[in-house]
Design a protein around this nucleic acid. Structure first.
Length: 751
RNA sequence: GGGCGAUUAGCUCAGUUGGUAGAGCAAUCCGUUUACACCGGAAAGGUCGGGGGUUCGAGUCCCUCAUCGCCCACCA
């Protein structure tokens, strides 16, 4: 018989190579219009059972600071693959999208943009400046959501959230108020990390250390002072109140407790000799000049020894007015002046080069100045009673701390971190965690819900902390805003209706199944989400944390503007299609490991999309007479093919279940190309044209069956090309048991 | 100072519980046959960083060294 069957013409689109540019936007539109990204619609339309188990992921909200980069694209590829897989498996699957206002990052971006137009934020004032920020944030948001669509992400847009919208703002104020009432949030004078460039405090996590060579000066305060000290910051010495030595240091032991009145560079100092075990007798002279106001460690020593402190450096990194010969000077100038003064008075004993890590602000690059300031903090060691606890190891009503919650949830195995080596890093971070400074002196963000009497201009009395703006015209709100991680810490449940704990989404989808994010924000974000949901809900925010690595360029370098090696996902999508971009970001990318991306790699997977396209054409040309429902007697060869495929398909399912997406995607690639196309299709050619009618029918049926099943298995990874093929498959070879025509909700093959 | 990771073909990487070394890209040769040249076939390429150990058997487990990279802490 004639091999071809003219009764069913091949859809014309298969006669040309696959064109992702024309196909993808149309396909995405069909998905969006179908409503199947929304689990409620899936249930309404009968695609998902109403009592099916839930599967939920909240999208780590991209910062509204511009555009998405390849790291975001990798995140979207991984999460979308998992979401599509679970949706096809019949779960009520919610992937909730949103964006992050990213307080300091966004504000400093807008400031920079305005500076180019010679506009300064203080000239605009708070209100006007914030208008600029909101406008910028809106534009970024629009770009970002377009990019998310471009990647094919099947997020439920009807539930989109923003960390600074009204619903999230209510959640923030509610959380703040509860923590304040429980004594977990307090206001206090502490040494904070002051960024003189950004004019704000920052948290320990926003500091980047840079190694620099500086000079270590050894000197005496005065000729008759008994102990020489060493310092890298001579200018701060006008604020010294003590010299600390190790209690067992025999060189200086006899001076402990003595006090000396000195005039140092024109400033009168009262220096007490104190003993403190934290002093290393081996370093420098074994004696430390204590400047409590400008060093965290000195501050602690001063605290232990009941010493007063006085500020000598101000918020603009200048010396204060009343410090002798360095009054009002810039820090570098003051340093030179002090050194010259020491030399002139023959007090300088030694100058040597040492390596030092200088603390700089991540966003502005400013050199951090430790300053004592009145700020808001979260106390991570404060015991409190956790009323309703679902956390194993912490009984309901028992006393615990935020630190303990963060530790127990992971230790008990309630939260699993993939790969597990990051659990160690997580514990290490918790152990080193100090109180979290949450107030920022910037304008963009959640305003702290605390109010003061107008006559209390320095805000020294206890404020009114309230969820809603309190009544009274004599009240002014705290001008500070919250650290951006405070609102992102609530993300898994503030997006699901909390603080209304009866909200249907909250009850159905929390705790979420998976949090997928970069390993670089494990401490900043992951730990804080665990803290917040542990405290506010007595529960975990997610069951599994999957950490992906950094996407580097083809040579393994970090992508950066200055290197000019940035691969823009949108450019790549335009050139090669989203499916190819997705695959290139999935394959060769183990959890927790950095991966490399090159254009060659993406091009390779574009070819794969075309391969699928053409294999489909071949199958369609040969299966017009096939009906998948009616399985003919199969040849020995085809029976073996199907057996092998069954194993393969079960393998793929297991790989995805265990988050081994890189393996699943690579195996699919390999099977489709080198088994299905190179072997099974090639062998079928001979059989189909042979005299053996039974064998021919068997081969045709097998081709149709495998194509149909492979499209389903491939769909989570390459949604566009598979859907585009699926919509053109004739009914007779579309192996599906639903009445819906879209592949996105077609049931996953059972083995 | 503490911790983590990497080291496998020219390049980029897989190798899931230990069982005869794999892919993509590049390079070589051949090829247009019922899809696909965004293709097919063939051949080539590796003492799996060095050394030691456990085991019938180690790329895989243990010890040790080396190189590269990352994270955390930080000494005035």
């Amino acid at each position: 018989m004639q091999p071809n069957n003219s009764a069913a013409p091949i859809p014309e689109k298969f006669l040309k190579p696959y064109n992702p540019q024309d196909t993808e936007p149309t396909i995405y539109k069909k998905w969006e219009e179908s409503g199947f990204f929304n689990p409620d619609v899936c249930v309404e339309k009968g695609a998902t059972a109403a009592d099916a188990p839930a599967f939920s992921i909240v999208l780590p909200p991209p910062n509204v600071t511009g555009t998405l980069h390849v790291g975001h694209a990798a995140m979207l590829a991984i999460e979308d693959s998992l979401v599509r897989f679970e949706r096809m498996r019949g779960k009520r699957t919610l992937w909730l999208p949103g964006t992050d206002h990213a307080a300091i990052a966004t504000q400093s971006r807008v400031e920079k943009n305005l500076e180019k137009e010679k506009i300064r934020k203080h000239d605009l004032g708070r209100e006007k400046f914030l208008e600029h920020v909101h406008q910028f944030a809106q534009e970024s948001h629009d770009t970002i959501t377009t990019q998310i669509r471009g990647m094919g992400a099947s997020v439920d847009w009807s539930r989109e959230a923003y960390t600074l919208d009204d619903a999230r703002s209510l959640a923030v104020r509610t959380a703040f108020k509860k923590m304040y009432d429980d004594g977990l949030i307090y206001r206090g004078h502490r040494i904070v990390n002051w960024d003189p460039k950004g004019q704000t405090t920052i948290s320990d996590d926003e500091i980047v250390y840079e190694e620099r060579t500086t000079k270590l000066y050894t000197f005496r305060y005065s000729k008759d002072f008994p102990i020489p000290i060493a310092t890298t910051r001579p200018e701060t010495k006008v604020g010294d109140v003590a010299v600390a030595i190790h209690p067992d240091d025999t060189r200086y032991r006899q001076y402990i407790g003595k006090e000396y009145e000195i005039i140092f560079a024109g400033t009168p100092l009262a220096i007490k000799i104190v003993a403190d075990a934290s002093v290393d007798p081996q370093f420098g002279t074994g004696a430390v000049g204590i400047t409590p106001a400008h060093s965290k460690i000195d501050n602690e020593i001063a605290w232990r020894n009941n010493l007063n402190s006085g500020t000598v450096i101000d918020e603009h990194a200048r010396m204060v007015p009343n410090v002798g010969i360095v009054s009002g000077m810039k820090i570098t100038e003051a340093r030179d002046t002090i050194v010259k003064w020491l030399e002139k008075n023959h007090l300088l004993e030694k100058v040597e080069d040492i390596k030092q890590n200088v603390a700089t602000a991540e966003r502005t690059g400013g050199i951090i100045e430790p300053l004592p300031k009145l700020q808001w903090f979260v106390n991570v060691n404060q015991p409190f009673y956790l009323k309703n606890s679902k956390i194993s190891g912490i009984e309901s009503g028992s006393q615990t701390t935020l630190k303990e919650i963060m530790r127990k949830t992971v230790e008990s195995g309630m939260i699993k971190i993939v790969p597990d080596r990051f659990e160690k890093i997580y514990y290490h971070w918790i152990d080193n965690l100090r109180d979290w400074c949450i107030s920022r002196q910037i304008w963009f963000g959640h305003r702290i819900p605390a109010w003061y009497k107008k006559d209390d201009s320095r805000r020294e009395r206890s404020p009114i902390v309230s969820i809603e703006t309190p009544e009274g015209s004599d009240l002014i709100q705290d001008p500070d805003t919250l650290d951006t991680w405070f609102s992102s810490g609530l993300w898994t449940f503030s997006t699901l209706g909390w603080p209304n704990e009866e909200a249907p989404d909250f009850k159905t989808y929390h705790p979420t199944n998976l949090l997928e994010t970069g390993y670089d924000i494990l401490p900043f974000w992951v730990a804080r989400m665990i803290l917040m949901s542990g405290y506010l809900l007595g529960d975990i925010p997610f069951k599994t944390v999957y950490l992906h690595g950094l996407v580097r360029d083809g040579k393994g370098r970090k992508m950066s503007k200055s290197l000019g090696n940035i691969i823009d996902p949108l450019d790549m999508i335009k050139k090669y299609g989203a499916d190819a971009v997705r695959l290139s970001l999935l394959i060769g990318t183990g959890p927790g490991n950095d991966s490399k991306l090159s254009e060659d790699k993406i091009r390779g997977y574009k070819n794969f999309a075309n391969k699928i396209w053409n294999a489909t054409r071949f199958v369609l040309e040969n299966t017009a007479t096939v009906s998948l429902e009616q399985r003919p007697p199969l040849s020995e060869k085809n029976t073996a093919d199907l057996e092998a495929f069954k194993t393969f398909s079960a393998d793929i399912t297991a790989d995805i279940e265990h988050y081994r997406l890189y393996l699943a995607a690579e195996k699919l690639y390999h099977y489709f190309w080198h088994t299905f196309a190179d072997v099974i299709i090639e062998e079928s050619k001979k059989v189909i044209t042979s005299e053996d009618e039974t064998a021919a029918i068997s081969a045709r049926w097998t081709l149709a069956y495998l194509l149909s099943a492979l499209l389903k298995l491939l769909h989570p990874f390459m949604p566009f090309v598979t859907e585009a093929i699926w919509e053109s498959l004739p009914e007779n070879i579309k192996n599906t048991d639903t009445k819906h025509s879209l592949l996105i909700i077609t049931p996953w093959p059972s083995h």
